[in-house]
Simulated scan of single mutants.
Amino acid sequence: MSKIAVIYWSGTGNTAMMANEIAAGIGSDAEVFSVDAFHGNVADYDKIAFGCAAMGDEVLEEAEFEPFFSAVEGSLKGKKVALFGSYGWGDGQWMRDWEDRCTKAGANLFDDGLILCGMPDADGKANCKAYGERFAAY
């Protein structure tokens, strides 16, 4: 069994919904945390799914998530990492930038980051659950 953390920031609840569906796809190995509630150590997890909505000019949320991610970024070498988040504008540049950061940090990046526009509908929820299933098997 793998120990898998799903750590996310959500301003409107859309990314939180994604996190919960991804965790449902992962199954009983998943531990879900909002970024402000995570007080553990990423080194204690075999895999980590990070979620953050696009903010501003397509960047990670700057008050809570960016400082958290910057602090753990150096611990991602060799770690299996998945990325996800919601957006309301743009073309996903924040996710491409985030993927590049993870790759440069030496993470074993799972697939392309999963992005959904706005609130996940039934198809979006199904995509999240399937993403979690595939990440659990990664």
Rank of each mutant, 00 (worst) to 15 (best):
F50C: 11
C117W: 07
D112K: 13
I115W: 00
M18K: 06
S70C: 01
A30W: 05
K3F: 05
N20T: 11
M55G: 07
D36Q: 14
G106P: 06
D46I: 07
S2L: 00
D97E: 12
K104D: 15
L109P: 02
A43G: 13
G11C: 10
S28M: 01
E64Q: 15
K125N: 04
R134Y: 00
N14R: 11
R101H: 03
V72C: 04
M1L: 11
V32E: 12
E64I: 04
S28L: 00
Y8D: 02
K77F: 11
N127P: 00
E62D: 15
W89E: 05
A126C: 02
G106C: 10
D111P: 01
K104C: 02
F65C: 08
K47T: 08
E64L: 13
V32I: 14
I115H: 00
M18Y: 09
M1N: 13
G124I: 10
D46K: 10
D44M: 10
Y138C: 13
E64T: 13
F84Q: 07
A107D: 05
A71K: 14
A71Y: 02
Q93E: 15
E64H: 13
V42G: 06
A82L: 09
V35Q: 09
G88L: 03
R101A: 08
F110Q: 05
V32A: 10
G13K: 12
F65A: 08
G27N: 11
G78M: 07
V42C: 10
F69K: 00
Y45K: 06
G90C: 12
I7T: 10
G118M: 09
D112G: 01
D36H: 09
A23P: 11
R101C: 02
T15Y: 01
D36V: 15
S86I: 02
K104Q: 15
G74P: 01
G118D: 09
A137R: 12
D97C: 02
R96Q: 14
L60N: 05
I22Q: 06
G124H: 02
A19T: 10
G88C: 03
I48K: 12
A136F: 05
A82G: 12
A126M: 03
C128L: 09
C102M: 15
A43C: 06
L109I: 06
F50H: 01
A136M: 02
F50S: 03
F135A: 08
K125D: 00
A126K: 14
G113C: 06
N41G: 03
G56M: 07
G56A: 12
G132P: 06
G132V: 01
R134V: 01
K77L: 06
I7C: 08
W9V: 11
D123M: 08
